[in-house]
Design a protein around this nucleic acid. Structure first.
Lengths: 110, 110
DNA sequence: AATATTAATCGTAATATTGCGATATAATAA
DNA sequence: TTATTATATCGCAATATTACGATTAATATT
């Protein structure tokens, strides 16, 4: 085996899992923090800032881009990456309600 | 290669990545939703509710437990799983500030 | 045009995850 | 004690991820 059975889960579950998986890596969290902190695209500087090879950063950026979390716009020779507002806010809201869906007050066991 | 370079990232980045990775699977999201919806431990019923083998569910529960997100208490022959309040709330807060750290108003590019 | 710069992609090796049958462990029930 | 029930663990095969050097593609500079 070794293949996630996506067909037995609903859209929400699969999509949330994909989005979280895209963020669930220290390098990608670091990349997002850099992009946010710079309040701008940091382009290829990321490879220097974090201590990873250019190919590795490019791969991580691709994953974030595929998940829709960031978007890149060509700027001369380099590419400017930044947060995709819509996706970011939607995911934030979705996670917010997921975490809020557990109300401690109503605990009935453990 | 193939080994995440955790040593080049900080504690916050590594821990958040581990927590998100634990949640970033449709089966584990479904498990958490079930536990939350039942507002109680659902124990082995999970294997029946979701369409996965008992061994598979047990493995997913172990991952969630290892990440500290849920905790299990023995209840006779079965085990009662439920949300770990502290960890859950802390993670929710952490994610909340992470997503809030990106203020759309200050956008300067893209 | 020739050269430099930047980013994407390819290929590869190492490691991790996913899912499940089979088996082991532990607690209750007969 | 001997079932019965519930969960955990082992072992395995399939697949996915991570990282990087090397190469390619595209734009800029000279």
């Amino acid at each position: 085996m070794g293949l996630t059975k996506t067909e037995i889960f609903n859209e929400e579950q699969n999509q949330l899992a994909i989005a979280l998986k895209a963020i669930a890596h220290p390098a990608r969290i670091a990349i997002l923090q850099q992009i946010i902190a710079a309040k701008a695209c940091i382009c290829g500087d990321l490879a220097l800032e974090l201590g990873l090879a250019q190919a590795t950063i490019s791969q991580h950026l691709k994953e974030l881009k595929t998940a829709g979390i960031i978007k890149g716009t060509i700027e001369g020779v380099s590419v400017c990456y930044c947060i995709n507002d819509e996706v970011w806010n939607k995911l934030g809201t979705q996670l917010g309600s997921f975490f809020a869906s557990y109300g401690v007050s109503a605990k009935t066991c453990c």
